[in-house]
Nucleic acid binder design. Structure first.
Lengths: 141, 141
DNA sequence: CATCTAAATAGAAATGATTTTCAATTGGAG
DNA sequence: CTCCAATTGAAAATCATTTCTATTTAGATG
């Protein structure tokens, strides 16, 4: 994702383009794996002499709310984040070993909607489809 | 689920049928909503003068591992547990308001397996499909 | 039924990720 | 340039969850 498109998206979400926020996006963008707040913090401490861990936590959640970043639901129950270039794919195959994230093009949304609506009369607020496993690479070793 | 079938399942998983473990299963079985460790503990403190919260946590995880109880992944990131009578349905529609859990018969496993296997060459270890929303009842109010 | 062993337990204490607080700072619209 | 709302740092709090250790118990076996 181009740097400039961040700016537009941030602006539309009323988030200021602060240096730290942009740096967090840059780190996520450069990573090929999902990252935890700690890791992001450690990477950025080199660039900013003052950077609090809470700032990283706060920004990540804001970026998730704004839809720029997706949150990974790891079996270990810690928070991980990933910047998915493809905004249309909400679902992922994550490798629990190396942390790689790959889009899942299959989406059950339509079927789920139908079932929940017709059978239960309920309303879907959100849904989670995440597949945990080992990627081709980790499978070899 | 009948009480006697618990015993068989516990035995086959090498879990002792202790009074507390059975009581936890009883509480879960009687509940129509998912429960957190705290709630279960509070209910059982009436029956056992000595009952530690860690015991509840430990037992719940053991029961999940044994496949008797399913874990709910709540958006608030706390742990919740639910005893699903229908062991074949791994997926649920949960109401974030009242806590009701309903089976989702639709399962994407086959399609996911195919996609992950054919496209990425990876191996699925587990997958999560959970739909969060409001049940028919909570929708009315 | 008595014995024995691995499993289970209580209780306290530790852990550690995440969140809150609040005063000080800063981005960016006008 | 000014100003206000958004952002931040630092410290402290939170709080669910885990660990530890000594003690107890379930249930297999004789």
């Amino acid at each position: 994702m181009a740097q400039s498109s961040y700016l537009n998206e941030l602006k539309s979400k009323k988030l200021k383009a602060t240096p730290k926020r942009l740096a967090i996006l840059r780190v996520l963008s450069a990573a090929s794996v999902y990252l935890g707040p700690q890791e992001i913090w450690e990477q950025l401490k080199k660039d900013f002499k003052k950077l609090g861990l809470p700032t990283v936590y706060r920004n990540l959640e804001e970026l998730v709310d704004a839809g720029l970043v997706s949150r990974i639901i790891h079996p270990n129950r810690r928070l991980y984040y990933f910047l998915c270039e493809n905004r249309l794919q909400h679902h992922h195959f994550i490798c629990v070993q190396c942390g790689k994230v790959q889009d899942i093009s299959f989406c059950a949304e339509a079927q789920l909607l139908q079932e929940v609506d017709q059978i239960y009369g309920g309303k879907i607020l959100s849904h989670t489809l995440q597949v945990n496993g080992l990627c081709r690479c980790c499978l070899k070793h």
